[in-house]
Design a protein around this nucleic acid. Structure first.
Lengths: 212, 212
DNA sequence: GACCATACATACTAGTTGGTATGTAATCCC
DNA sequence: GGGATTACATACCAACTAGTATGTATGGTC
């Protein structure tokens, strides 16, 4: 028998429902009524746990969006070869991503596009997640250069910011296209780009069979 | 002396104000009242010219967003060397883009992110613009391959969709970062990528001075 | 100059939204 | 077990929104 009041569970339910609702409709389009209906929680409970819609949104960013983003990039840095890991992530994303995810895009990117220009608190929270991603990726790229897995003539900072932009761009632009064709193409382009980050000699080893 | 009623002028004023308001606040966040206040036009006139907020939005897409997008990519295809032209556009965008544009992002991308998943009419209108861009770019890449300006071992379709994604991604992700640093880095990464699309011999000619 | 469609202008409505005030019932602590 | 705090629940509100009904004046047409 479980206790009647489970504040942690209630709070978590609200976070998850809000995350989904924001993913579907954006933050401003997200309806508190919908979240309440979906969870069976009342408005009093919601305003007890969070205090405003904005605070709920910020909690979603910190406790749902941040783990979502980091779950994707952090494991890549722990692999042996960062390029191999990035390419295999690219392929996994290409394979796993279903119509639902393609239609709604990346929750992180969605919030940036919608909220960054109009709310400083949101921008700061989202930017903090982005900065961590940037820092981690740049560190990974530098490490890869030291290990000789990545060509020396690229700038890690420029490359890192470009990779992040390209990934989010691929997912984002796919929302405009109804079919999966755009996503598959763009992700293939991304893979080709990642491949070109290898030292030239390593690329040749791979490209040689195609040319011969 | 000008006539008191200038329907074309009124309509154009509404389009321009709506374009700016949507750029600032998104379509759903755009307030008709603000547009009316800004233009001095009354609600009766607005609903006479357009008929609903949605139709106003679609008119903005077709008559403001489409020309905006095409004004950027179409000239590139008419240059002699498409890579040179793309790189010079990249540099121009990097130099010209001011804080205002960096903060609000690309009107085309913004609308895709916000509206594509939730409104079929908007998605179709936006996707049509995207398809034209894709087709034009792919044609340009194929043409560049024939002329020997672009390496043969890349897939024009994948490369085209990736380039579009990367461009919009760079502008979009910059919205999260308060400073220009991200944009400058990402655009430098884009330029390096475009450089790598040249045939290897052409790259060497450029890269050699740095290596020697 | 009559007529009529176009081009506005004004006032109002209905619906939805986030937010709040107030009340109540668990639960924890001493 | 009593008191206080946490965790809800209900009812209501003010603001804003897109949209509409209705009226009026202008400009072109015959």
């Amino acid at each position: 028998m479980q206790p009647r009041k489970q504040p942690d569970r209630t709070r978590q339910q609200l976070l998850e429902s809000a995350f989904a609702e924001i993913h579907r409709n954006g933050f401003r389009g997200a309806s508190l009524e919908t979240i309440l209906r979906e969870t069976g929680v009342t408005k009093g409970a919601l305003y007890h746990h969070f205090g405003s819609k904005a605070k709920l949104g910020l909690a979603v960013i910190e406790e749902m969006v941040r783990p979502f983003v980091e779950a994707n990039w952090k494991p890549v840095l722990e692999e042996d070869n960062i390029i191999d890991a990035a390419i295999s992530l690219t392929r996994r994303l290409t394979a796993e991503r279903n119509d639902f995810a393609l239609e709604l895009g990346c929750p992180f990117n969605n919030l940036i596009q919608e909220m960054s220009p109009i709310d400083e608190d949101f921008r700061n929270a989202l930017n903090a997640i982005l900065q961590d991603w940037r820092d981690g990726l740049v560190q990974g790229l530098k490490c890869g250069q030291q290990r000789g897995e990545i060509r020396q003539d690229i700038c890690p900072e420029a490359t890192g910011d470009f990779i992040i932009s390209a990934i989010e761009g691929c997912v984002g632009m796919t929302k405009a296209s109804q079919s999966q064709a755009f996503y598959l193409n763009a992700m293939q382009g991304l893979e080709q780009y990642l491949e070109q980050l290898r030292p030239v000699c390593a690329q040749d080893q791979i490209r040689t069979p195609k040319n011969s």
